[in-house]
Nucleic acid binder design. Structure first.
Lengths: 193, 193, 193, 193
DNA sequence: CAGTAATCGAGACGGTACGTCGTGTCTTATG
DNA sequence: CATAAGACACGACGTACCGTCTCGATTACTG
């Protein structure tokens, strides 16, 4: 049975990895260049020299493709490691903001797409939001263990405030500067002591 | 000069207020019932018994109409008045969350629309975001004058965190409960003392 | 009673002749310049500095206005007078063709409009076709009385052939040259002897 | 090279002949029933159970579709064959008139459409006018060879008069009776002897 | 000389058709 | 099976005119 399944999975012509890569690359380029909305599935497939069905065979729609396209490039979420909670949070936010200088517009569009499509919202949360949130959570938890924070501090509320603040500014088109990262970090840390 | 302006403004057949109201009412109803995306401009106009042009004469597109439609109903943002900062903020947030139980989905769609249309983002900020933010800002400023807060408290960062937190949960589809309002309020107040 | 009628007819503000003239002039100009189809009622009224209703008060629609506009200028249908039948017919046709060099395109559009509007077809026939046809008929009848034609000649068929021939070439976009006028005239005369 | 052309021509999903036929049939029916003007592109497509784009993929607009629709049914233009010139012409005209009893209104609308669209006028001439004119031309040429006509007869002028006469009556809404066919035929023949 | 009534420019009104666009699915022939 | 190409049904879009209507403001005759 397992063999049959394997056979079934590998029957016929295998999928072309070149097509997959071309689609991801083209999607990223076009969206960066013209904006999410102005780019259609037809454009992406055409530019990638690929049939439209080939795209639908790999992703359910434009949003999912573009999410993967920008995920690949933004994959590197590093734990800022040592230092005080405040320093670590500040570095974390500044890294985040730096990435968003490039990809901010695309990410905003993806959040937008997620608002009318619960399934895609789920994908977006799992692939993009949570991995980044986990890093910040790690920083706080480490600080809590080290006794840097008050014992009755509400870590969850603080994390929500932390991420909310930057989403808020991103979605409202307000600048995400290193200075703001520092102030936000300071404000959050203060609420935990 | 004044006369000329008046004349220019009142020339030709005046706009029909009934049509404006019908459009707002129908837009609100349909979007609440079927969701933003599922409602088309043609549906709204038809249901309102109005030509499509009549709609375009008043708003540039669906987003602007729907924004106005939900603005009217959500216009009542009350200053919660007396009490400690924490109590006032909690009440403010709980009111906000209550309203969003009904209108949350529509508001989410409007934020989404704003992500690809800078002009509409501006409208949205001015008509929806700022008026509400001003209320919270008022609460904090009153508290600061009353000496309830630390002198070096970063009010702006706190406000961003406050609003960011609830936008964050709204857009990510997470529940906005009264409990969360209290915890968030507490966390913010803590960062200001 | 007559007085009453007169009174009823002359009550209220009288129609503005300037508007009528402006509409005719502008209609003629615009249609000559851009073609019948490309010119809308709104354009004509706007260019004439006149309200749209003012136009509808005078004519039922674009076709009727344009017909009148071109009628005024093409009013001069002269009986070519003396000479043999052939000479008279030739001169008649050559005059006709000359006028159509300028107004041909507009006239073609009017015939076109008449095809889907029986009432306008009637107007067109009475105001444009018959007056011109009568001139040709006059030529043939004079010749018949003078004994230039066979007694059993079918004048009606000849007239239909004569006018049909030039409408045919006009509507099919073929040139209406003086040479063709002469050949057509000769052919018709031949059929009458 | 030929192979490449073949490949290019047969690439992708082929056009659906059923759709083409349905569109032609429905166009013919609707125009016959309600008149050209009252029939819209959307009606035709809907009635044919076909997307609007499918229509535009095949024809540039309503006129071209309707022309093809009526061409198919009016394709049978038969050479009346034997008999004297007069008899042959009479039979030719009577056949023509018979067909126009049914299709006259549609044909008139097509001539009308052609007046504002040179490209369509060309199509109309090539697909509709010339094939029919060629039959009449054949009759006259055969007669000329058989010595039935005068040597200096102007065949071209006669043909123009012949067709012009019936277009003239058709477009002016005058009846096309068998009697008129006979009289016209006689008049034309007379001009050639 | 006030009242009455039709006209005027302006422009909004409900409709209807237009031609274009994008979606997700399908159907070819060719790997 | 997958692939490139492209047709398919569907439906929204924003625009253009249509012929009618509703304003406030003239402009003449009437009583």
């Amino acid at each position: 049975m397992g063999a049959e399944k394997e056979a079934a999975a590998s029957m016929g012509r295998p999928r072309d990895d070149m097509a997959t890569e071309a689609l991801l690359r083209v999607a990223r380029d076009l969206v960066t260049r013209h904006g999410y909305r102005a780019v259609s599935i037809q454009m992406i497939a055409a530019e990638a020299g690929v049939g439209r069905q080939t795209l639908y065979r790999r992703w359910p729609g434009k949003a999912d493709l573009v999410l993967d396209a920008f995920l690949a490039s933004a994959a590197a979420v590093e734990d800022p490691g040592l230092g005080s909670v405040g320093e670590a949070l500040t570095r974390y936010l500044q890294d985040l903001f730096k990435n968003l200088e490039r990809d901010g517009p695309a990410i905003r569009s993806l959040v937008a797409s997620a608002q009318e499509d619960p399934q895609f919202l789920d994908s977006f949360r799992q692939k993009f939001v949570w991995p980044r949130a986990a890093v910040a959570a790690g920083i706080l938890q480490r600080a809590a263990k080290a006794g840097e924070l008050a014992e009755d501090a509400d870590l969850e509320a603080a994390l929500t405030a932390l991420h909310g603040a930057f989403w808020y500014r991103l979605l409202l088109g307000e600048p995400l500067t290193p200075e703001f990262a520092a102030r936000l970090s300071a404000s959050i840390v203060r609420s935990l002591r």
